[in-house]
Design a protein around this nucleic acid. Structure first.
Length: 152
DNA sequence: GCCAACGTTGGC
DNA sequence: GCCAACGTTGGC
């Protein structure tokens, strides 16, 4: 059992979209960064905990709790010429981009980025590291416990 | 809109 | 393999 923080732009896929999706589940499409892909492809397991983070928006922060809901499979948007995530260099025989499904667990009062930075217990969170741009980052069990018990 | 930080591309 | 140029991320 591992824990993750996954960023999403709420204009595209917010915690509310996830809650209202069929089976409360969405495929995590559009990741086009190898490190983030590798986390989904190689390390994530069904049931892993997910902090659902809203980024590139007026109030960035953790907006809810979710969980990994599938084993990895090819991201269909890489083959869709009409998708902004279309990748002409990928092909069906050796798909370049892999994703997992994510299932809604609960919505929480938004924990703003500034609040996360206030707590020394969270000082080493990958997502708070200077210059971090990774859309998927590991969360330690201690960080997960602190956030879900004291901030959520 | 600005800009720091980082990842990717491609010429050599 | 190096590295400059370019594109993207994402907070502010």
């Amino acid at each position: 059992m591992r824990y993750w923080l996954m960023k999403s732009e709420p204009d595209e896929a917010s915690i509310d979209h996830l809650a209202e999706a069929p089976h409360h589940t969405l495929p995590w499409t559009g990741v086009r960064n190898y490190q983030a892909r590798n986390f989904m492809r190689d390390t994530m397991q069904v049931g892993d905990g997910v902090l659902f983070y809203h980024s590139s928006c007026p109030e960035p922060g953790i907006a809810g709790i979710a969980a990994v809901a599938s084993t990895p499979y090819p991201d269909p948007t890489q083959f869709d010429r009409k998708s902004p995530y279309y990748d002409p260099k990928s092909d069906h025989e050796t798909p370049r981009w892999t994703l997992v499904d994510v299932v809604f667990k609960q919505k929480i009062a938004l924990i703003p980025l500034a609040t996360l930075r206030e707590h020394p217990e969270l000082a080493d969170m990958r997502v708070l590291a200077k210059g971090n741009r990774l859309s998927i980052t590991p969360v330690t069990e201690a960080e997960w416990r602190f956030i879900t018990k004291h901030l959520a």
